[in-house]
Structures are given as C-alpha cells and as structure tokens.
Design a protein around this nucleic acid. Sequence first.
DNA 1: GTGAAAGCGCTAACAT
DNA 2: ATGTTAGCGCTTTCAC
Lengths: 333, 333
Amino acid sequence: MSQATLKDVAVHAGVSHQTVSNVLNDHPHVRPATRQRVLKAVAELDYHPNVAAKALREARITALCCAFYNHDADQIADPYRNLIQSSFVAEADLRGYTMNVAFLLGEQPETFDRLRQRFLQRQMGGSVIVGQNMTAQQWRTTREWGMSSVMFDQHFDDTLVNTVFADYRGGMRELVAHHAAQGRRDLALIIPLADPGSSGVERHEQFLASVQELGLRGRVVNGDWSFDSGERAARTLLQGDAPDAILAGNDRMAAGALLAAHQLGIDVPGTLAISGFDDFEFTLYTTPRLTTVRVPHEAMARAAVQDLLNLIETGEDQPARCFPTELVVRDSS
Amino acid sequence: MSQATLKDVAVHAGVSHQTVSNVLNDHPHVRPATRQRVLKAVAELDYHPNVAAKALREARITALCCAFYNHDADQIADPYRNLIQSSFVAEADLRGYTMNVAFLLGEQPETFDRLRQRFLQRQMGGSVIVGQNMTAQQWRTTREWGMSSVMFDQHFDDTLVNTVFADYRGGMRELVAHHAAQGRRDLALIIPLADPGSSGVERHEQFLASVQELGLRGRVVNGDWSFDSGERAARTLLQGDAPDAILAGNDRMAAGALLAAHQLGIDVPGTLAISGFDDFEFTLYTTPRLTTVRVPHEAMARAAVQDLLNLIETGEDQPARCFPTELVVRDSS
DNA sequence: GTGAAAGCGCTAACAT
DNA sequence: ATGTTAGCGCTTTCAC
C-alpha cells in the first residue's frame, strides 16, 4: 500500500482537498462537523503529510544541522558530544525541526563544501557549529555562505552575536582560588601556547591574571589537549623545579599528568594537586578522582538551538550567551 | 538575492529547462557545446538544485536517520557513539545521503512515535537503529511501521537479516583463554543477569562454556553496566572467597572493579587480574591501564549504512553481518 | 464555510 | 539533440 495523500483523505471524507488542508493547518472557518469527518478520514487512512511537498510549497525548511568541528581525530571520542547532541535534538524536536549531522575537518576543505551544499540545496535551514578550536577564518567562511548559524562553545571577540559559550575565565578564577585556599603556592598550567583562535586562550590569560592577583607563582607550559602531551608536560615539570599544583587545560591532559605523578611516585593530592577542565565522565574513574571545572553543556546546547531558530525565523542576530562554569572538587586537589 | 532555479539557468543559457535538467543528471543526447553553455550558466548563477522539489518529483528520499536507543541515561555518554556516528555520516555521504539523528528512550514511547512520524512524513527513508539492549518487542514494533532499518550492535536469533553485530562470543572465548594462559584459575564475570534481550547474554553464556572447557572455576555475579555496580560487585567478591580474575562485561564496570581493588589494597595485576569489554578511550587513563576486548565499531557502522542503503534501494533483506572482536592486552591482566 | 485554480522546482514522457 | 507538456503533494488566492 502506498501512502495516502491529501486528496485521498478528501475523497474519503467527501470534501475537497483544500478543506482537508484547512483542517490540518488549523485554519478558521471550518464547521466542527466537517472537521470531525476530516479527522476521522485522516485517522482511518493513516495519513501523514509529505514534508517535501510542504517544504516546496512553503519554501520553508524543517531541518537543522549540527556540525562538529574537530581539530584532531582524538576529539571524535569527546564524551560530551553525545550529551550536546541529544540536547540539540531534544530542543529542535520541541519546535518541530529535525537535526542533521555533519563533521567538519580543518584539513579537509571538502567537508566544509558538503555543509555548504546541504544548505544551498535546502536540505537544512541553518546549523549549530560546535567549534571549540575553529579558526576565525573558517568561521567567517561559513558566514559568507549566507547560512544562518550559531557558534557553540567558542567565540571570537569581534563577533559577539549568535554564539553560545562558557565562562572559562570565571572557571579558571575559581579554580586558582581553590588551589590557593588549599595552600598551594606554586602553580603550573598546561595549555596549548600557539592556538590563537582556541577557547584555551581565555584559560591561559585568566590563569596569569589570577596568580598575579593572589601573589602566587604561576608558570605555563605547552600541551596539545591530548593525554600524552599532559603526561609529557607534567613529567618535565615534576622532574625539575616541581610545582605544588598542576592545572591542566582539560581533563584529558590532567589524566596524563596524574599518570606521570603516579610513575614518579608523587603523592596526589598530598604533595601535588592536579585539576582538569570539562568534567568528562572518566574523571570519576581515575585514581584519585579528578577535581575539574564543569561546563553546563546541556543548557548551552538547548540555548544554541533556540538562538538558531530565532535567527532563522526573525532574521535578526541573537545576542551572545555566556554560561557560568562550576568548580567540581573531587580527590585530586 | 533569492536562489536561482533551473528555469533561471535555462534562460541564462538560452536553452529549455529540460536541457538543463538533462545536463545536470548526465543524460545522453546533449551536444558538448550546449553542455558547456549550461554548465557555465550554472556556475555563474551559483545554481543548486532544490532537494525538496527533486524529492517530490522523484518520490525518493535522500536522508537517512541514525536512532540511538539508550537503556539508561548513563549510556548517553558512551564515548564510542561519536565514532559510530561519524562513520555513519561518512558512509552516507559517499552515497549522496545525509544523516538525521534521533534518540529513543524505552521509558518514553513518544520518542518512538516521533521516529515513526519522520519516516511516514518522508523526512527520511530508513534508519540504522543502535540498539545494544533494545527489547525484541521494541525492535518488532519499528519493523511494523514498514520502515527500512538495520539493527546495529545487537541481534535477535530469530531475525538474522538487516543486522550488524560483533562476535562477543569469540571475544569472550579469547579473553578467558588469555586469563587462563596467565595462570588464573578462578574467574568471576560481572554482567547483567536479568536482561534477556541484551547482547550481554552471549558474553554470559560463552563465559560459562569457556571456563568449563578449560577446567577453570567460573562464577557469574550481577552488574547493570554502570561503574557503581562494577565496584559493588567486585567489593563483594574480593571481601569473600576472592577470585584471581574479574572479567567485567564492559569497561565501565571494569573501572569500578579496579577502584574496589585499589581501596582494598589488592595488587592488580599481581594478585588479581581485571578486564573489560568495549575498549573505550578511558581504559587508557586508568591505573593500571585496562585489558579489554575491542569491538570494531567503525567498520561495523559503515557496513550498517551500506546494508541500509541496499535494503532501501533493492527492497531485499540483507544478510546479517558478524564482526570479529580483538583482545587488547594492557596492564591490568 | 467550502471549492476551484494556480504554482512551488523539478523530471519523465512525449513531441519535434 | 532540444523543446513542450504534465504532474509529484501541498498551500495560497480568490470565487462562490
């Protein structure tokens, strides 16, 4: 059996197909009795409107896209992406939209082309771009397509609209204060040093500001967000003039630092405090469990979809949204 | 400026719109010169076909859906879902399809309804359902909608078509043999005991078969896939007649067992071997790093999309595919 | 209140 | 080899 069309419903109900359309779209001026008959026919024929026809006629698209930008393949395993995504989908559902997915790779320009194609071919009406460490140039490029989009978990100071991000500065301020309150006086931060577009810059800058303000010693060493880079950086630090706290820019590097401390026989948190950023699930599985700064990904994700839909529907840029972070003190500090 | 249509291109190139369509769809009987003129016009006007119009006319849908079934919210953070999903998207791209996402929740029937709606409204032509622990009844329900679908990482013995799964039995056989080869003689498995539809059943059954075959002692205790349940089960085991190896049904429970051993001061892997299943990323971050059984998620994901597209395009059920697992020996056994 | 006509952008079938 | 006609399923506009 083929799918019933609006016309089939009309015949079945003994009315014209426009009347059916009127009923289905809640238009006024339909007699209750007629409406009942139509709804009965709809139910009996298990009628479902054809979105393609609707979209064609209304020149309106009911699909959005969430595009994940990965600086490196490592991030594909980011445990939070699932949470973000299910929040995107849930929020889109609420407004009658579906969610597509795309993956963008900096080293593969064709992944950007495909996203552009999907937009221009009207497969989707706009996208949430999960950047984190996209370059300003890449972001600008997507804007030039004319596509409505909202940047997620990253922002550029020159474009403070249509963007949802976390208050990494506030998180870092709180974290440094926590370490100071625990009596730590010699702090080291592991963070990418040469990654200008990245959200790491804020953590870096705020770290320097906070240690100065609190009169602590503060050093910064390079890491590339990976577990291995965290381990290497920590090992170098601990074998020389060791700090009494290592702050990693993310949980992954913090886990690496933890391993280095273990291997060098250094007591955590006794001799050395270690902390991360993100609050990924595995922070519960390390020994000791990792102190970290949680980012409210779910609320941010829902906000991003709301902003995107408002942007699409009104055409007006939405003001940037900055979400507070939360210090999660566990056993490593 | 509004988007150019096929007609605009035709006017610009001085041909009929049908000729443009012929060129774009690689139909024969188009003179090279005409083709060139059309392509030039397409480029100049930055023309992109409207998928809604195409879909309506061709009665063909170029979107698929990947639906994730979560038994509990915990699984939302499954680190492998990203890998699976990007593989789905990559494979679909290759065949000119886009991927939607849906999340199914056992306790919320409306999530199933929404998926059905999307299919019936022709927003997508079929879906890959990532089950893992869906009930046979839920699976049967989706089949009754008439939707083409492929079941991923789960299978039911009575429907060995359109399903892609891993050889958990083979993985368990290899794992038990490994523990035996290391001199372990008293094995305990942590796995859900009352979860009939689950892929855990195979691990359970094979564990019993393997220990018997190798003349080892083998016990099975209950766990619900969560970190906490692994910790509880292991603690109970270790405080009584302790085994010399604990095999957890997944990495999460293995991490819990590891914590219990740590807290009880038991040396791993000296006194006790611990192993998991899945090879999630965090197995690299535990101390010691976890021995586990890897499942080839990426290859499985690509196969699932291939099967789905073949099913949609030919209408013929695709034979089940079973992928071998791989023992990954690290430091915990 | 309801029906008839037109057309969204595209392709298949038929004409030339 | 190219142009013309028709219609996919729906909503909007305008009669009645």
